[in-house]
């Protein structure tokens, strides 16, 4: 594998943040290019990172990483930055990147605020796996499968035709892409999907979920406990609807002949495309 590795270290004393105390910001920057021949998967395991991932037609992966510490003491910020480590390695047909804090035995715990920033370009047909917490993630132009595991992250997926496997704890997700198969496990997640032509399988606890199912031969299955689900099918009549609920507030279209006391519905049973919803202690809106 031919790779180019660039390592740059910038120590920047900045006074641009306005808090009660003036914070010193120290940044370390890492750049790398990897030949993607023979790779099938790209895996990023990050903490407190802002990540931008873009698919392109090149057969290489271009990575720019910034490691940032903020502290009222510049010396402390510089010292703490040394604890931020990045590992990059190829194992089999997968390329891994990981950032973490390495505290040596006997060292005092770092007191700085840590942040990592990734800007990555990768082949659009590479399988993508991203784990992150406390940060923003932007993904665009990916056509292969995306696996996302996020905690307290703001995520956007745009211009992608991939399938998605999402495990999300708190945070927000905005999907403005024509994705294929989507599987979601959401806990207090706020998920907004635009028009979705693929299939969907979602298990949700609390939170908010919005989706516009496109008229297709796909099926949607949503199981939710608490929280609110709002669906706006592009063509209401092209789906069959099987709704079963317990202690929930159902707001259904007029032609469903909804009755507030009724818990279960089977509308348009002859349709092959189904929207199946099982909701407990939640709010369901179908428009």
């Amino acid at each position: 594998m031919k790779s180019i590795f660039c390592f740059m270290l910038f120590l920047l004393g900045m006074t641009g943040l306005h808090a009660q105390t003036t914070l010193q910001v120290v940044t370390k920057s890492i750049q790398n290019k990897i030949n993607a021949d023979g790779l099938k998967k790209f895996s990023l395991l990050a903490e407190g990172a802002d990540i931008e991932l873009s698919g392109w037609n090149e057969k290489e992966i271009k990575i720019t990483i910034q490691l940032i510490t903020k502290n009222s003491s510049k010396e402390t910020a510089v010292e703490d930055l040394k604890a931020m480590k990045v590992v990059q390695e190829k194992i089999g047909n997968t390329y891994f990147i990981r950032n973490y804090l390495a505290i040596q035995k006997g060292d005092s715990k770092p007191t700085s605020n840590f942040k990592a920033k990734y800007i990555i370009y990768l082949p659009k047909d590479l399988l993508l796996s991203v784990t992150n917490s406390f940060g923003d993630i932007r993904i665009k132009g990916i056509d292969a499968n995306i696996q996302l595991n996020t905690k307290f992250c703001k995520t956007e997926i745009a211009a992608s035709h991939s399938s998605l496997d999402l495990d999300m704890y708190f945070g927000e997700m905005d999907i403005q892409s024509q994705l294929r198969e989507v599987k979601i496990k959401g806990d207090h997640a706020r998920i907004i999907m635009g028009v979705h032509p693929g299939s969907l399988e979602a298990r949700l606890t609390s939170g908010y979920f919005y989706c516009e199912p496109a008229a297709s031969n796909q099926s949607f299955r949503i199981i939710t406990d608490k929280g609110e689900v709002k669906l706006k099918p592009q063509n209401l009549g092209s789906f069959g609807y099987i709704v079963s609920s317990e202690h929930s507030d159902l707001n259904l279209p007029e032609n469903f002949k909804a009755d507030k006391k009724k818990k279960n519905y089977n509308i348009n049973p002859d349709k092959t495309s189904k929207i199946i919803i099982n909701i407990n202690y939640g709010i369901l809106n179908i428009q």
């Binding site: 307290f152 708190f170 207090h188 706020r190 608490k226 609110e228 507030d249 939640g282 709010i283």
Partner: peptide, 17 residues
């Protein structure tokens, strides 16, 4: 009651986010 509890849960989630 559900709407009220869901509303509070949503606000708490928003604050934590």
């Amino acid at each position: 009651l559900l709407r009220k509890l869901n509303g509070i849960e949503e606000k708490k989630t928003d604050v934590l986010n």
